[in-house]
Amino acid sequence: MSATQEKPMTLKSLSHKKDNLSGGHRMCSGCGAPTVVRQVLLAIDEPVVIANATGCLEVSTCLFPYTAWRVPWMHSAFENAAATASGIETMYRSLRKQGKLKKEMKFIAFGGDGGTYDIGFQALSGAMERGHQLLYICYDNGAYMNTGIQRSSATPMGADTTTQPVGSKIPGKTVRRKDLTRIMAAHNVAYAAQASPHNWRDLMTKVKKALATNGPAYMGIMAPCNRGWRTQTNDSILLSRLAVDTCYWPLYEVEGGKWTINYDPKDKKKPIAEWLKPQGRFKHLFAPGNEALLERFQKLVDDDWESLQKLAAAFGAK
């Protein structure tokens, strides 16, 4: 049963489903992550079990004696959501094999970019290589936001963070970010994709595909953080849309080695400045004398976009 054969998803039809993340969690006002989680959970029809890395999402959604989760949920530490999920999924397989468990279930691990790109990278790589039937989702806000906006390997070049602050000598983060989605694709996982909550249909279709696939899956999902990005509380969806329209965060998927760009803005591709400008963490890039930094940022985006197009052309649908 493939997702594409089903009726097209509509918000009206989805609105009948139970929201599996309750209100009353303590995520900051206007945070992008809970919107991502709600969309992910709404996309799933089967019973699902969640593993969560330490991070904003974890501390804010399950603060004893409260939990916002209406599905089985487990957190154990920061760097090991993929390993913890491996254990849960393997116990499921063992008990099913022995006839001790009847119901079919799906498994998802959530981690922020710190818990995924950095400290959880090894555990993630191992879990993907071992072929567990699980979907790992990184909600990517581009820094260690939970602990106060320290730079991670997902932080964009030039960003002002509390551990690489903009100073008179150093203009914020000096190196470019790691491209984790491509690294996951290089693991030859069954499914790897990037998504963004502004395009809920694309995001939810990808979650369905990822869970229907036979093998491990990875999704990187943009999750704006108004505290860390120094933006307004009302612009998380606006900024995730701009990230896609500028091709900073292209929507694409890699299914069994086949690369597909899901959204190509073509001649409507916006200059990166449109995404950077509303964000206080990039303010210095617009100061006189820093034109070269802005140009370099644009070039990195353009080069990445071009290489992604080449991959899609070379390894896309024939």
């Binding site: 009206k12 993340l21 209100g23 919107t35």
Partner: peptide, 26 residues
């Protein structure tokens, strides 16, 4: 679909108002 706080009340496929107990006013 975009509310981070599950604070938009939908009944019978129609938006009917806000859950002000949980809406953070973003």
């Amino acid at each position: 679909i975009y509310c981070p706080d599950s604070a938009v009340v939908v009944k019978d496929e129609k938006m009917t108002g806000f859950d002000y107990d949980h809406c953070k006013g973003c």
